[in-house]
Write a protein that binds this DNA or RNA. Structure first.
Lengths: 262, 262
DNA sequence: GCACCCGAGTTGTATAGCCAACCTCGGTGC
DNA sequence: GCACCGAGGTTGGCTATACAACTCGGGTGC
C-alpha cells in the first residue's frame, strides 16, 4: 500500500493481529509481495511511513525490524531500506506443525500413529526435557503423509503430562498440535538441528524405502511460553520432499553451523 | 554479571562492540553461559538491569531482544524472562564463512580451488544474482578440509566483478571471505536452503566418497549491505561432519519449511 | 480446605525527541 | 574530465514517559 493520502491506512487494513506494529508489518509485507516497490527497490523513509500510517517512528521501526529479521528488506544507516526478496513468510505454527505447513501449501496432510510406549527417559531426554533421574517419557512414533504419500516419520518424546494428552488423540488424527493447543499446551519456542540420517527398520517400513537409505533429519526441542520443555522430537523426511530455509544477517541471526555429534 | 552495586558495569566490561546495547547483550550472554541464573532460572527485571548497567530500559530491551532471537531466553508479558539454554551463539561471519567457523572450534580449516570457469549465467543464476539476459558469471569449485580431512565441496557462483577478485586469490588460500572483505566486499545477508543431494563425479573425487553417495546440501545466496547479490553457492557436506541448528519462536522467526523443488 | 479476587510486579506497546553516523548526490574547484 | 567537499536526507542509538495486558502469589470469604 502506502499510496493513499489518509492516515488511517492501518485501520483500513482490517483488525488483523492486535498490535499496531504487527498490522503495519503485515501491510508492508503485502505491499512488498505485490511488488509495489520492485525487487531491489527502495522503501519510503521511516518518517514518510510514520506519517502515512499515522503512527510514531518507533512503531514503524518495530514493524521494519520484523521484516528485516525475515529477510525481506535490508537496513543500513544513511540509506533508505532496500527490498531483498518477496519471500512469503510462514507463521510459527507452519513451522512447528507439519499439518498447518502442508495445508498452507494446499496439500492434504495425514498422520497415523504407529506405536506409543512409556519408558524411562534416556540421559539425553532427561537433559532436553529437564527431567529428574528417574523421569519417564512417552514416545510416539508416527508416519506423516502428503496427499496419501508417506513423507516423514516422526519420533516425538513427551514428558508424561503432555504424553498422556497425546495418547488420548485418535491414532489417525491429522494434527496433534491442534488438540494440544485446545487443552492449553502452547508451543512457543523451538530449537532445530538439521542433518542426515540412515533409515532404520521403522523408517523403511513406514516410508517404503530401503534400510539405511539416506533421510533428511530434523531434531527439535520445543518449549512452552514459560520455558518448560514440551517435546523433543526427531523427524526423518524422504529426500526430495522438503527443504529447510533460513535467513540470517549481520545484525543478529538464529542459524548456526555445528559440528556433528560423534 | 549483574552482581556488583555500581552502575558502570558496561564500561567495566571493556570497550567491546560500539553500541551500548550490544555490550549489555554480550555481558548478559556471558553471565548466562556462566550459569549465573541457572537453566530455567529467571533473569532480573528490565528495570533492575537498567539500573545496574546505568542505561535506559529501552536499551536493555534491545539487548534482551537479541538474546531472545538467539533462543537464550523466553519473554512473555507479566513474568520475568526465563533462561532457555546456554547455547553459545556464533557470529554471522562464523556462519557465512566456513573458515571462521572452523577456527572458532579450534579445528584447522583448509581449502583448495579445483576449478574456475567463466560462463554465461543460467536462468536460475540470473534471477538469484539479478543479472541481465546475457549476464556472465564465474564459477569456483573448491574442496574444503577440516584438519586435512575433506569435508565439503563448495560451488560458488559470482557476478563478474566479485568473481574477478576471487580468481586472484591463491588456489590454496584458507579463506576467501577475508581477502574479499579487505577489498570492500562485505557479506551482510544470506538465505540458506538445506536439503539432501547425491554426490556427482566432482563430489566423489574431491571428498573420496562413492558416486551418488548422500550429502547434506546447503544452497546459499548472499548479498552485501546495499542488497546487491554477491554470491550464489551450493555446498555439499560429508554426512556426520556438520549439522545446522536454528532457533525460532512465536515472536518472529527466520526458519521455514519448503516443498522441495522438482 | 477451597475457590475467588485483588494488587503488586513485570513485560508489551506506543509516543516524542535528540543526536550521531552514514550515504548520496550535486556543485565546486582545478 | 576528474577529484573533492559539503549539505541534506536517512537510519542507528539512546532516553524518558505513560499506559495496557498479563502473571502470580497472598489474602479473603465461604
Amino acid at each position: 500500500m502506502v499510496t493513499g493520502s489518509e492516515a488511517d491506512a492501518v485501520a483500513g487494513a482490517g483488525a488483523g493481529a492486535g498490535a499496531l506494529y504487527r498490522r503495519v508489518a503485515a501491510d508492508l509485507r503485502e505491499a512488498i509481495a505485490a511488488g509495489e516497490y520492485g525487487s531491489g527497490g527502495r522503501l519510503p523513509a521511516e518518517q514518510a511511513l510514520a506519517a502515512h500510517y499515522g503512527v510514531s517512528r518507533g512503531t514503524i521501526r518495530q514493524a521494519l525490524a520484523a521484516l528485516r529479521a525475515n529477510g525481506l528488506v535490508t537496513s543500513r544507516r544513511g540509506t533508505r531500506r532496500v527490498v531483498l526478496g518477496t519471500t512469503r513468510v510462514q507463521s510459527f505454527s507452519e513451522l512447528v506443525s507439519f499439518t498447518s505447513w502442508a495445508r498452507s501449501l494446499g496439500e492434504e496432510p495425514g498422520g497415523r500413529v504407529d506405536r506409543i510406549e512409556r519408558r524411562p527417559a534416556t540421559a539425553y531426554e532427561r537433559e532436553q526435557l529437564r527431567l529428574p533421574a528417574d523421569g519417564e517419557v512417552i514416545l510416539v512414533l508416527r508416519a506423516r503423509t502428503l496427499s496419501g504419500q508417506p513423507v516423514m516419520v516422526e519420533r516425538s518424546v513427551y514428558p508424561l503430562w503432555v504424553g498422556e494428552l497425546v495418547a488420548r488423540i485418535p491414532a489417525d488424527a491429522v494434527s496433534h498440535t491442534e488438540p494440544l493447543q485446545e487443552q492449553g499446551v502452547v508451543f512457543a519456542d523451538a530449537d532445530h538441528t538439521i542433518d542426515l540420517a540412515a533409515a532404520d527398520a521403522d523408517d523403511a517400513r513406514l516410508l517404503g524405502c530401503d534400510l539405511a537409505a539416506p533421510l533428511l533429519r530434523e531434531r527439535r526441542r520445543s518449549t512452552d511460553p514459560s520455558g518448560a520443555p514440551l517435546e523433543c522430537s526427531e523427524d526423518r523426511y524422504m529426500p526430495g520432499t522438503v527443504a529447510f530455509t533460513v535467513h540470517n544477517s549481520l545484525a543478529g541471526s538464529a542459524l548456526t553451523r555445528r559440528q556433528a555429534a560423534p
